[in-house]
Design a protein around this nucleic acid. Structure first.
Lengths: 250, 250
DNA sequence: TTGTCTTATGTGCAAAACGCATCTAACTAA
DNA sequence: TTAGTTAGATGCGTTTTGCACATAAGACAA
């Protein structure tokens, strides 16, 4: 099967490209952002309705091309700023999508990013960019099994997604679920001060499960990431909960 | 701080690019492969010595440009085939590196891939591509802390790495360590039939620690991924171990 | 003032997972 | 037959986890 190679040594067929890569046609390079937050205890992503030709009427992730003098992270920050009007949120690279016919107009390779928006940032984005819609993301698989996701309008209608953006959203949920309980990403969805119940709500919303309260509480407190602020939640008609801050481990 | 945006709605500055993206200069797009296997119980990556201008004399990961009609995975498989002469090994996308001055010649964005080579595939690559060198990878941090890695020649000399390939190697080790005990990637470094000891050796080499034998054995057997073949290891001067096959969970 | 409602927070305990020492099995070589 | 070596199993104390339940702290209404 691979014996055809035994006879001849490996030839560096790329050496021409190494010397004159401009001789080859290049794919266009873009970034697409999953702007993810929580609405009423469920994951929600900010989407734009496409008005123009390819996939007109379908819903797309905010994105943009990568400038020749722009790093990938800078391009993602630029989209965050220009298309959602926000800064200062958690942003991480997700995966790079390079299928040939992702975009029917031309070959575009897209580096997907995941931005995590606390409730305030999500509201701010909706205010600053009125064309954005917070679509509920249904994840019909459990754990890290993977699979499709469905985007729903605030009224509950299924939103058809443009390009391969359903795949990108699925990858975002998969990665977030995978990282949630061994990393500190969960805190990126919370305001600076939060209660243990809010932290548990974040985990339950992302994982799509319910969690045992005393066990969750113990596990989180034992991690050493939570610093009590001394003050308490206000405005409840019952016992107010302690407010904590996220303290990155020393 | 972000109030400057309150006055004006978000403008789609990308719409020109959406219509005529060829008007913008594009970064070149490449793939770089971490070909990782184990040599004498330690991680090893296949590197090429650069003979030409940028970083001449330094050691680089095999890579190549992404063709306009090539998916990213296809480009990675092509490199695997042309530069290492192998096929049929585990290959997964790692991360995309896009720093502005990664390559001094021009702007090149590179999608890094991780290929996991069982011992036979590693030997085959070394035979088919004699310019490849199996460099030992030292990982001087524990767990998933992250940090630098060092490449060593077979004689133990430090090999200076080209471009940002040290970062790519570090990312490869980080990801592999992270995935090792919740996924089935470990089996990608083993032949079809293997003993529990060999499986443990793989885990120990990747993690850079020793593991408790009975606990490891129990954990692996309880996962349901191991199917006993009924036959036993040959050629030992002591009790031969049972050979297992990897059986993806039903 | 007191009792009720509701959620926060703490406790006790059984089940499961894990680390570790140790025991037995199976094979070679002398 | 015996020594040497590693595979594989077992027992047990410790740690982690799941879960039921008890107690604490606030608002509110009678």
């Amino acid at each position: 099967m691979q014996n055809a190679y035994k006879a001849r040594p490996v030839i560096e067929t790329e050496f021409l490209a190494e010397y004159d890569p401009t001789a080859y046609e290049r794919p266009a390079l873009a970034v697409d952002l999953v702007l993810l937050g929580l609405r009423e205890g469920r994951p929600a992503a900010l989407l734009l309705k496409r008005e123009q030709h390819p996939h007109a009427g379908r819903w797309a992730l905010p994105g943009g091309f990568v400038g020749i003098d722009q790093t990938l992270d800078a391009a993602a920050l630029h989209v965050l700023h220009e298309k959602a009007g926000i800064t200062g949120v958690h942003l991480e690279q997700l995966y790079t999508f390079g299928a040939l016919a992702r975009d029917p107009r031309m070959r575009i390779v897209s580096v997907a990013y995941l931005a995590l928006l606390p409730e305030a940032a999500l509201a701010e984005a909706l205010e600053r960019a009125p064309s954005l819609v917070a679509a509920g993301i249904e994840v019909p698989w459990s754990g890290e099994a993977g699979g499709d996701v469905v985007a729903l309008s605030p009224k509950g209608e299924v939103l058809p997604l443009a390009f391969d953006h359903a795949d990108i959203l699925a990858m975002a949920m998969l990665r977030l679920r995978g990282k949630l309980d061994y990393s500190d990403v969960g805190f990126a969805l919370l305001p600076e001060h939060f209660t243990l119940r809010q932290l548990q709500d974040v985990h339950e919303a992302v994982l799509g499960t319910t969690l045992n309260k005393p066990a969750f509480r113990r596990r989180m407190l034992d991690r050493g990431w939570l610093a009590p602020t001394g003050s308490r939640e206000a405005g409840t008609s019952f016992r107010p909960a302690e407010l904590y801050r996220f303290q990155p481990s020393r």
